[in-house]
Design a binder for these strands. Structure first.
Lengths: 126, 126
DNA sequence: TCAACCTTGACACAGCTTTGATAAGGTTGA
DNA sequence: TCAACCTTATCAAAGCTGTGTCAAGGTTGA
């Protein structure tokens, strides 16, 4: 046995063994395993475990947030979709073209219909 | 009044008025307001509300995740910290230099001390 | 051999998130 | 004027997250 066991790693990193398993489960920090399946923590993992604590404390974020950030950087399609949603600044009423506003200037029910129609042209068919 | 009210927007976008307020509260999609403070939804907002639904459904993420992604892109310090944590691949036991391993090869208590020492040097020179 | 580890899985609980409902009060338009 | 909206604030319930603890069983080393 060369590296620290989960209890030793917990002791030195400030997490509990339970949390070390949880952190692994959500995809942050995987460890090598011994033949028998025991987790092995080396200096690199210990370092990451400590900086992880700092990261959470310094920015008031949770493990789930870091896990989501990881997912974002691994799933190209996801990050693309999220980014393009975030980038698309909404066109406020003020920013809409004049004749689009003509259509918009209707009484309530007609406006709703118009909105639906506008949308269908925008996204094939909802 | 030119744009849709919150109930109309809810009706056409598939959210509830409650959720529209919630979505605004967590920082996604802010709307213009009338003099009296009524929210105004234009075509842009409606589009974003619909694509938001798709985004969540397509990738099985939550509103909180999108809010966190927004926070990431607004808070440079946060995204930098998260990114550098994610980028720092842990050096596995196998990847550690030979003489570092000499120190590592001790009985349990000494190993823990060694781990702490190793970490201190790593933190200053990470 | 056997105490002291390790593993996974399950039950449990506090606290936060997401969502609805309801209340008290202002706005709007026929 | 008054019904039907809107606003914010609050109470509440369902669900998820983070965490502990325990059980059943395998591993290790003195």
């Amino acid at each position: 046995m060369e590296a620290l066991t989960i209890h030793e790693a917990a002791e030195t990193s400030g997490w509990t063994p339970r949390m070390l398993r949880y952190i692994e489960r959500i995809g942050l920090i995987e460890t090598a395993r011994t033949e028998a399946g025991y987790r092995q923590y080396g200096p690199g993992e210990l370092q990451r475990l400590r900086t992880l604590r700092e990261l959470l404390a310094d920015h008031e974020i949770g493990l789930g947030d870091v896990a989501f950030a990881l997912r974002l950087r691994r799933d190209e399609a996801l990050s693309g979709a999220v980014d393009s949603w975030l980038e698309a600044e909404p066109q406020r009423p003020e920013a809409v073209s004049a004749d689009e506003w003509l259509r918009w200037e209707q009484e309530k029910h007609a406006r709703i219909i118009a909105a639906l129609t506008t949308n269908e042209t925008m996204e094939t068919a909802a």
